[in-house]
């Protein structure tokens, strides 16, 4: 039970300090899950992002549910989901009902401008760290750069890109293992 509360509070915190979408949550997620709690490694979190991108729903919620499930099965999944949405429900309700001109407030706009500069720097730091952990060979470099270019310059759906890259990964690995006979994965089994 106590770990469920920890999961809820952790994701509550995440929801309360994230500005922007699911990717803006990544720097805080890494800090809390990988470094502070040591629940899983950075690669696992990247895998969850990849899967979340291709599944229905909000990416931030999907990633939270994956992590919650990994810790404490279905109860952990629900604790994480409730945690990450609760701050939004509270904050947005207050604003929608009582602060009609919140978004036009000058102080709010200055503070937000400062926060977004900071968030950009945090995401850059996260991208560099992911590059180090997840892009390990020429194949990875090619995939990463092509996906970056396609996402910036075309309207191709990210879901399509994610599915294509999963298939490319499978294709590349099976071509590789044709060259060398026994694969390491089977031996580990």
């Amino acid at each position: 039970m106590s770990e469920l509360i920890t999961i809820f509070l952790l994701f509550f915190k995440m929801g309360a300090v994230t500005f922007g979408g699911g990717y803006a949550m990544l720097p805080i997620l890494r800090r809390e899950i990988v470094e502070n709690h040591r629940w899983m490694d950075e690669e696992t979190i990247m895998d969850y992002y990849a899967l979340s991108q291709g599944l229905p729903g909000i990416i931030a919620v999907n990633v939270s549910v994956f992590i919650g499930y990994k810790r404490k099965k279905a109860p952990g999944a629900f604790a994480a989901a409730l945690g990450v949405v609760s701050p939004s429900i509270i904050i947005i309700t207050v604003i929608a009902l009582f602060l009609a001109n919140f978004k036009d407030n000058l102080y709010v706009r200055h503070a937000l401008a400062g926060i977004s500069v900071c968030v950009a720097a945090l995401i850059l730091d996260a991208v560099l760290s992911m590059w180090k952990k997840g892009v390990k060979d020429k194949f990875g470099i090619a995939i990463c750069l092509v996906i970056l270019a396609l996402s910036v310059f075309t309207d191709i759906s990210p879901i399509l890109l994610v599915v294509a890259c999963a298939l490319l990964g499978i294709g590349k690995k099976s071509l590789d293992s044709k060259g060398s006979s026994g694969s390491g994965k089977e031996a580990a089994k």
Binding site: E43, D47, V127, C144, C165, G169
Partner: peptide, 16 residues
């Protein structure tokens, strides 16, 4: 193998 392709892809998506 799927994740072998997915990790660089996610890096690219986040860079975008």
């Amino acid at each position: 193998s799927a994740f072998y392709g997915l990790r660089p892809a996610v890096t690219g998506l986040i860079a975008a």
